[in-house]
Design a protein around this nucleic acid. Sequence first.
DNA 1: TTGTATGCGTTATCAG
DNA 2: CTGATAACGCATACAA
Lengths: 341, 341
Amino acid sequence: MAVTLSDVAREAGVSLATASRAINGSADRTVRTDLRERVLAAAERLRYSPDANAQAMARGRTIAIGLIVHEIADAYFSTIASGVTSAAERAGLVVTLASTDRDTARELTFVDLMQRQRARAIILVGGRFDDDTSNDRLAAALAEYRSRGGGVAVIGQPLLGVDTVTIQNRASTRDLAHQLHGLGYRRFAVLAGPENHLTARERVEGFRDALAELGAPVPRDLVIHGPFTRDGGYDGTAELASRGALEDVELVFAVNDVMAVGAMAAARAAGLSIPGDVAFAGFDDILTLRDITPSLTTIRLPLTDMGAMVTEMALSPAKDEPRIVPVDGEVILRDSTPRLR
Amino acid sequence: MAVTLSDVAREAGVSLATASRAINGSADRTVRTDLRERVLAAAERLRYSPDANAQAMARGRTIAIGLIVHEIADAYFSTIASGVTSAAERAGLVVTLASTDRDTARELTFVDLMQRQRARAIILVGGRFDDDTSNDRLAAALAEYRSRGGGVAVIGQPLLGVDTVTIQNRASTRDLAHQLHGLGYRRFAVLAGPENHLTARERVEGFRDALAELGAPVPRDLVIHGPFTRDGGYDGTAELASRGALEDVELVFAVNDVMAVGAMAAARAAGLSIPGDVAFAGFDDILTLRDITPSLTTIRLPLTDMGAMVTEMALSPAKDEPRIVPVDGEVILRDSTPRLR
DNA sequence: TTGTATGCGTTATCAG
DNA sequence: CTGATAACGCATACAA
């Protein structure tokens, strides 16, 4: 059925080996021009399509890299994914995508799957959880994958023993806290995300620590935990509103933008005006932020670049100690947090 | 280096064939229990990981499906992609992702790439362009891929000769036009997207035709063409504003949501209030819409479901005529288009 | 039920 | 520079 390289060779009147060399045509152009052209013509005529699986077998390496994200429909992840696909294309590789829906068990399953696919590298993106068991399991799986020659790089916390692009969460939210304080804000609430989500936790800690030092601590009961999603932001704010807490709060900080955006929707639904009655700030600077009103103060992350960066790391050797690449967030003040006093 | 099935067989003291049968363990459980267990134990001990490429060769089929989208960072595509990855996971398949940046040439390249990967199926999502040459070329590539046993399904216009999930663009925008007319709107402008983009064109035509029939035709100079992106919406609206055209216009219809959202940002930048000075409507009902203000009137598409649907089509036989599955859009009236008179 | 032998489509080794 | 031929890792007819 399928036309193979042997067919091409026969059609061109050369040996299999010559056909292979002519078509691959890599570094060693050790094939006579007329033969090469005959082979190429034959391939064209027969509509030959090399079998990547067979090539992978013979060569001992594939052209695939695995990308594992929490949720591809989320703007944060899809933007990073865009950076990954671009970098992969540049490197002549294809990316195999897996979306775990934040299920650590599924993460493990997908690492195994990529392993079986003999992917060149695995890229894992998404904050880790405070769960030693699952982190250790994952670290072990990745270590084994690496021991078999695969490359690994992660965007998240550097606790998997592999190359990591890590966001300076604490420093960024400290910075944000200082700037907001400078604008006159003193009474804050925090939509803190899941308690065991390390990214969320770091962001909260940086924010609260800085504010405590500044003499404007965030009361414990104004730190609301919930899902790291839009609805998490919405529900958390709805809860604050129903408690009447928002009347005393000047600014709500959500640990990521989608939460902040959901939070603003909830505030509006509760009849509050933004930023008149309450101000908001987020984290990530996802692209869709440009178009929400009022424009949201946030911390910008170079998401696409991070995708490209993590891809290059995953593909480069680095045999020694795991490399840690810190990424700074840049505070962007916008209309959602006007000067207060 | 790598541990192979032969290693497992030797370790378990059985033949290669038995080891294969024990580990694959498919329909025919034709291997004695004690042997099977010995093999499984050996595999576990040796940390055996089957080579998917070798399996693909031996079996004659892979477990990969190819997904080609215009831009994975776009909410429309990433939501569909989410539906595809879910459906693929359910089917025990992995998805190889390619983002073309709306480049038809690259689309062709990726089809070829998926072909080489011997992907089980190819899913192509994104509106076609009015460009017979590139469409024909693509159709030919897909036909060849199918003739080699691959499945193909598309979300877009049914002009590639393959199974297609097609959005009822005309009917949907006609419906929208009627409803807006019913709300009292008479003077419209349209952000029409690229002139050669078929989805954009269909949406514009349905909208304009209906309005013409209703006696409220959209003047040609209020139909602005531009990119199918957020910035396309922004720039188109900025142009309308700078021409002073928005003073006479009651409602701006953008052929997709990201354009509408960009358009609203531009209107605000021009000092207009929404919907006080001008109303807006979009198309797609992307998830992020929930959180923009005012909430945007649009036409809802079941994006995730469409992703699942197109995956199932691509994976199912259907040897006869290409199947066309129409998807209806549902008009959702929101705050951006209040009753006018 | 198990084992042997062959083939899958390429690349790479090693002679000519 | 070219051509046999042996891998690559696994599945599967066929034989035992």
